[in-house]
Design a protein around this nucleic acid. Structure first.
Length: 523
RNA sequence: GGCAUAGUAGCUCAGAUGGUUAGAGCGCGCGGCUCAUACCCGCGAGGUCACUGGUUCAACUCCAGUCUAUGCUACCA
């Protein structure tokens, strides 16, 4: 069986989760669910990045121990992921024992190999922050933005990674693999940055950071958080601790990350793997930001919104609409904007009016004209127009997901739904039901529509799992929709028999009432 | 400052290798249907394809420049 290994970035635990974190996890979850449907054995890794000076400081301010802060925050991340339907296989924490071992092993191996060496480092040190600042952290006057003081030049012994040694190999890798970095235009940025790449410092003095993994054999140094963090992708699938798992899943098929950390993944991480002689990931996919009502979210603006804020705003019990909007509003990779109106319009139009109403009208007719029963002679063969459209649609969905283009996949299914609504209008089963002679035609039309709905529910399941399950149940189909694979996408999956009654037909997604939304907004 | 990407209907966006009247969805107007979640279907209005030049029989599509937005990077500091 083929495998599929997908990861998210691990989130930094010095704060609570927000919608930006959620966007990435949802995208990853959707891709993962899709590939599982294809019959691949999948592994979905997410987790938290827990070391470093900022966490140490935040914990101190709150009067907590760093580990305690991370325990609390990682719990709230996990809670949020459960709320929005993110189903991962492992939640890794960089404070996990197996991870610490892996990081030290990597560091030691590279030291032995000579790819990590000791050298002195001159940096700008702010005594207020108790840490080194880079040029770009400073204000225009060269002051520390937090303390309004000029940082001092301090010399420190550090360990360095010989990144320059792998520079050319990284450049070649990117140039020879057009899909290595997605979206493609980001690859240029990375190549640009590579031009000026030098060896990087991979440790910090214990005098500036204590919360981290010590350099093996040198307790005066702490391993740089990025080396620590990036290695999670190895630990997460059992590197050095579960060979069977590791051999099955490594290398990663795709790292889903934000555009802000592309450099670390496509340069540092690739360099380290090359130095370790470990196979490289297939693809690094960088997504854009979410803006809310055209405003960038930031802590300083105080407009950081929680992962489920859309659900909260509209009092939604399931995350489907939020997932749907975030993934269909813009192509993955670009920035997307959330606005209450856009959300309402999009979700009402696609999920309630087109998808939900289609199921509702067709099942209602089945109940009304046939007592909810599909008779054997109503089962149509696959030569009908809609059947071949279902076939085309699944091919398009497959192609879109090959390039991780979620919004494109959604669009294909939505146009199938629209075509089905048109089909119902054109064939007018309510008229066919009036004459005894055309009753069988009516039955066939309804079967065709409901069978199409079965396709739609499977195709959209990765995005809207709860709504899809609801459709699945209302069609009285057996089993759970999460177990359905691409194999189920064959015409005539819906069998003859009584599948619905007046009581079982219910809207799968109600229109968002405009007045209700208005009230909520005023709060 | 350098490099990159983008600028297409009111809004969100599609538009390989230049070639008939520039597309979709939403919104808007009109009409139809009545099975349905005031839903669905059809028709229509609406665009100097950022701007200016150029190449070409022909440019939204190629070239140059300008403006704007965004990203990466640099330096000034």
């Amino acid at each position: 069986m083929k495998k599929f290994y997908i990861t998210t970035a691990i989130d930094y635990m010095n704060g609570k989760p927000h919608i930006g974190h959620a966007y990435e996890k949802i995208a990853t979850d959707i891709i993962n669910r899709h590939f599982k449907q294809r019959g691949l054995e999948t592994f979905f890794l997410t987790g938290s990045d827990e070391h470093g000076i900022k966490i140490e400081k935040t914990a101190q301010e709150l009067g907590k121990r760093p580990k305690q802060l991370c325990d609390e925050n990682s719990d709230s991340f996990k809670e949020e992921w459960a709320k929005i339907g993110v189903n991962y296989d492992r939640y890794i924490r960089t404070t996990d024992e197996d991870h610490k071992e892996v990081v030290q092993y990597i560091f030691k191996t590279l030291m032995d190999k000579g790819d990590i060496y000791k050298a002195s480092y001159t940096g700008l040190y702010c005594s207020g922050c108790e840490s080194f600042l880079s040029q770009r952290d400073l204000t225009e006057d060269g002051l520390c933005p937090d303390h309004q003081k000029k940082p001092q030049e301090v010399k420190e012994e550090n360990y360095f990674f010989k990144l320059s040694k792998y520079k050319q190999a990284i450049i070649d890798r990117i140039k020879n693999n057009p899909n290595f970095i997605l979206p493609e235009y980001r690859a240029n940025e990375v190549l640009n940055q590579l031009e000026n790449t030098e060896d990087i410092s991979v440790s910090r003095s214990i005098n500036s950071v204590t919360w981290g993994i010590p350099v093996p054999g040198d307790d005066s140094q702490i391993i740089y958080v990025w080396i620590d963090a990036l290695s999670n992708y190895l630990t997460g699938v059992g590197y050095r601790h579960n060979n069977e798992l590791f051999n099955k899943f490594w290398p990663a098929d795709v790292h889903i990350i934000g555009k802000d950390i592309l450099k670390f993944h496509s340069i540092y991480w690739i360099g380290i793997l090359m130095a370790m002689g470990i196979e490289l990931p297939e693809c690094i996919h960088a997504h854009g930001w979410i803006t809310v009502e055209e405003t960038k979210m930031s802590k300083s603006l105080g407009n950081v919104l929680p992962p489920d804020f859309i659900m909260q705003e509209f009092d939604l019990e399931i995350p489907d609409a939020e997932r749907y909007f975030l993934m269909s509003a813009a192509p993955y990779g670009k920035d997307i904007n959330y606005s209450t109106d856009d959300f309402k319009n999009k979700v009402n139009a696609d999920l309630a009016n087109n998808l939900g109403n289609l199921l509702n009208r067709s099942l209602s007719m089945l109940v009304k004209y046939f007592n909810g029963e599909i008779t054997q002679d109503a089962v149509t063969d696959k030569n009908c127009e809609l059947a071949s459209l279902c076939d085309e649609t699944q091919k398009k969905v497959l192609e879109s997901f090959d390039d991780y283009k979620i919004s494109e996949a959604i669009e294909s299914v939505v146009s199938l739904v629209n075509a089905t609504n048109k089909y119902v209008n054109d064939t007018a089963p309510w008229s066919l039901a009036k004459e005894e002679t055309t009753l069988i035609e009516c039955a066939k039309v309804l079967y065709t529509v409901l069978e199409t709905m079965r396709f739609v529910s499977i195709l959209l399941y990765p995005v809207i799992p709860n709504i899809s399950q609801n459709i699945w149940s209302q069609l009285s189909l057996e089993g759970n929709i999460s177990e359905q694979t691409w194999e189920s996408l064959k015409w005539n999956g819906l069998k003859a028999g009584k599948i619905a009654s007046k009581e079982t037909v219910n809207p799968v997604f109600l229109r968002l009432d405009s007045e209700l939304a208005g009230d909520k907004k005023k709060k």
